[in-house]
């Protein structure tokens, strides 16, 4: 995949300012891994209590982008960035990274429960964040919110790895919800799941958006169309277009976006 073969010059990105209050503001974000530039000059605002989908072909910088939002990239030694990210107005790269990660939770591509019991999976996040009282209540609340409680309430002390893939992913969501973040990042959370498990997670996300700002990376265009309110299209490390999902899918402003959503590449 190459810009030249698409025959479309990279113009100015088309970015709308959301009408809702802003939760996360990204300004002129550029990222390098050693000398490779993974993101170039990305700026847009993520609305509070909405689902924002990040779409684009593989290798376009989607994952890199959301890993900046909770400073997971700090763990990669070659990582270097310029620009600014503000969470509710505060610069996250000036905050304590653990504080950022507590307020901006993350769910990964492959379900990665700790190889411990279901209970321990949820309780650990609570404990390290200094919430030791009402542990049982908090664990239950998190599992209920992730629509998992009824399935696991009788086997809380079984290993988490004994759950099905879809259940494991919902456990990972519950684990994040337990520490009560403001923002929930999901990096292709359903790519390793079957359609039924995927549908359950999509329903869950729609339920959750009243309380959380959700950013989901997906390579599944239909999924983005089904669940998101806003959508950002990335291509070769650049933000090409960001607007309401409805508009992006019906009236894309950039020819590249149109080519991607109509399945002509990617």
């Amino acid at each position: 995949m190459n810009l030249a073969t698409q025959g479309t010059p990279v113009g100015e990105p088309y970015v709308v300012e959301p009408s809702e209050p802003v939760a996360v503001e990204v300004q002129a974000l550029s990222v390098w891994y050693r000398s490779f530039q993974a993101l170039a000059d990305v700026s847009f605002s993520i609305p509070r209590h909405r689902i924002t989908a990040v779409i684009g072909p593989s290798g376009c910088g989607k994952s890199t982008f959301i890993r900046c939002l909770n400073r997971m990239n700090d763990l990669i030694p070659e990582f270097r960035m310029t620009g600014d990210i503000r969470l509710e107005g505060a610069r996250i790269y000036e905050m304590d990274p653990t504080e950022v990660r507590r307020r901006v939770g993350m769910v990964f591509q492959k379900p990665n429960p700790f190889p411990k019991s279901i209970w321990e999976n949820i309780a650990w996040g609570l404990r390290i964040n200094g919430r030791r009282h009402d542990l049982a209540e908090s664990v239950e609340r998190a599992l209920r919110r992730a629509a998992l409680w009824d399935e696991v309430k009788d086997k809380l002390h079984m290993p988490a790895t004994s759950l099905s893939g879809g259940q494991q992913q919902r456990l990972c969501i519950a684990r994040v919800l337990a520490v009560e973040p403001e923002v929930l990042l999901l990096d292709e959370p359903t790519s390793s799941l079957d359609p039924i498990a995927t549908a359950r997670i999509e329903d869950l996300l729609i339920e959750l958006k009243d309380r959380y700002t959700i950013v989901i990376v997906t390579h599944n265009i239909q999924q983005a169309a089904r669940i998101s309110d806003y959508a950002a299209f990335f291509y070769l490390g650049r933000l090409i277009e960001f607007q309401k999902t409805e508009d992006l899918f019906t009236r894309p402003r950039c020819s590249m976006t149109e080519a991607y959503i109509t399945g002509r590449f990617g």
Partner: peptide
């Protein structure tokens, strides 16, 4: 120790030592 375990723990706001003590070392 698989990296996914570390990522999960860091993403919950664990400090380096908390991640090492509670997840990496036991495994």
């Amino acid at each position: 120790v698989p990296n996914s375990v570390r990522e999960a723990a860091y993403a919950l706001g664990g400090t380096r030592w908390q991640v090492v003590r509670d997840h990496v070392l036991p495994l």
